[in-house]
Simulated scan of single mutants.
Amino acid sequence: MSAIKLAIVGVGKIVHDQHLPAIAANPDFALLASASRNNTIDGLPGFKTIEEMLAAAPEIEAVSLCMPPQYRYAAAHAALTAGKHVFLEKPPGATLSEVADLEALAASKGLTLFTSWHSRYAPAVQPAKAYLAAHAPTAMHVIWKEDVRHWHPNQDWIWQAGGLGVFDPGINALSIVTEILPSQVFLTSASLEFPENRDAPIAAELHFQDAGALRVLAEFDWRQTGKQSWDIIVDTADGQVKLSDGGARLWIAGEEQPLDKEAEYPSLYRRFAALVKAGRSDVDVAPLRHVADAFMLGRRKVVEAFHD
């Protein structure tokens, strides 16, 4: 099979930091063009809209959509309607209904739709999942706290309705939680802190349980300075499991485990290529469903205004 002719829509920091190196290193893809309101990729034709791009370059076979989630549905619908396979950056959409509609459209056209969750490909995730499959978890504590001014400076979209606020990084933690737990958990209560001048939360506390005795506490906060915290701690009868640095490091019963080198985005593109070749889709909305439940069930608390 020849290289898949790919285009990127929404050219921002994550594209330059992660997507472009992963694509360049993968012989299954040939990057042809980009579409973005304000940015281009050096050496490639650049267009303002996906519609302009698809009209000018009909040979494109697949697109990676990396714009904010509020704008992703229209672009994905346009791509699928034009017969293109679609890679969705996380989160896959602004609502669950959008993603369900795209899944149905992709299926009707025999196209691949891939809801990518890059944190699931962190090196600690699969070893932790295997351990927890053999050693039942009894409790879990998720601590995902970082400095929004460092990671998302001057990004107004992330504070708008649909931008998810602190759930933009928090959903990465939830993607790991839903991957490594052997049982399904559901939200029982939540507290969301909204700056008085913003439409999205800056902090959240979530409580989950499964059908048995497992309880999960997740704490998300965008106000942490200094050392950043991306940790998941799981208690079992046979010792504690700790994933740290977003899943880059793993301890089991107090001993750090040897892990493969981090390769989240190369793994995502290998997965996307395999799905396209097999004529299959991979649509998982479990992390987004938990976020939707938090907005539905969570108690709202107004806190001091946030200014960049």
Rank of each mutant, 00 (worst) to 15 (best):
G43M: 00
E61A: 03
L259Q: 02
E52V: 01
A130I: 14
F47C: 04
H207G: 06
A263P: 08
S267K: 14
G226H: 01
P195R: 07
A190K: 06
E205H: 15
I171W: 15
G110V: 08
A100D: 15
A82F: 02
V148E: 14
R198Y: 14
M53C: 11
H16P: 02
K261F: 05
P21T: 10
N197P: 09
E193T: 11
P69R: 02
K261G: 08
L132E: 06
D101W: 00
I4G: 08
L80F: 05
N197G: 02
L268A: 12
L259A: 00
E146H: 05
I41C: 00
P201C: 04
K242R: 14
S267A: 13
M1G: 12
V11M: 04
T49H: 09
R72D: 07
A253R: 02
N154F: 15
A161G: 09
L206Q: 03
L259V: 06
S244C: 05
K301G: 06
D156S: 10
L174W: 15
D293T: 06
G226V: 01
T95D: 07
E255W: 03
E255Y: 04
I202R: 11
L250D: 00
G93M: 03
A35G: 08
A79Y: 06
L80Q: 08
F208A: 10
V283Q: 03
G254M: 02
A79M: 06
S64V: 12
A278Q: 04
G10K: 10
A273E: 05
D42H: 00
F167C: 01
G93A: 03
V276T: 14
A286L: 10
T188M: 03
N154K: 15
G239L: 02
A200E: 15
L174G: 05
F87M: 03
E262N: 05
S116H: 12
A203V: 06
V276R: 07
F272E: 05
L20E: 00
A211F: 06
P201V: 09
P58R: 02
A22P: 05
T178I: 11
D231E: 12
G254T: 03
D221R: 07
A25F: 02
S189M: 04
A294G: 01
G170M: 12
A56M: 04
G93P: 02
T49E: 10
V15G: 02
S36F: 02
S34W: 06
N197E: 04
F272P: 10
V86A: 04
S244L: 05
E179P: 05
F47I: 00
D260Q: 08
L102R: 08
H118Q: 12
H19E: 00
A75P: 06
L214C: 13
M140D: 07
E98M: 01
K277Y: 13
A62W: 12
A122K: 13
P91S: 07
I202N: 11
A122M: 15
N197T: 09
V63Q: 11
G247Q: 08
W222L: 06
W251Q: 02
P69I: 11
W157L: 04
S116A: 15
H290V: 11
D101A: 15
A104W: 00
N172M: 11
I180F: 10
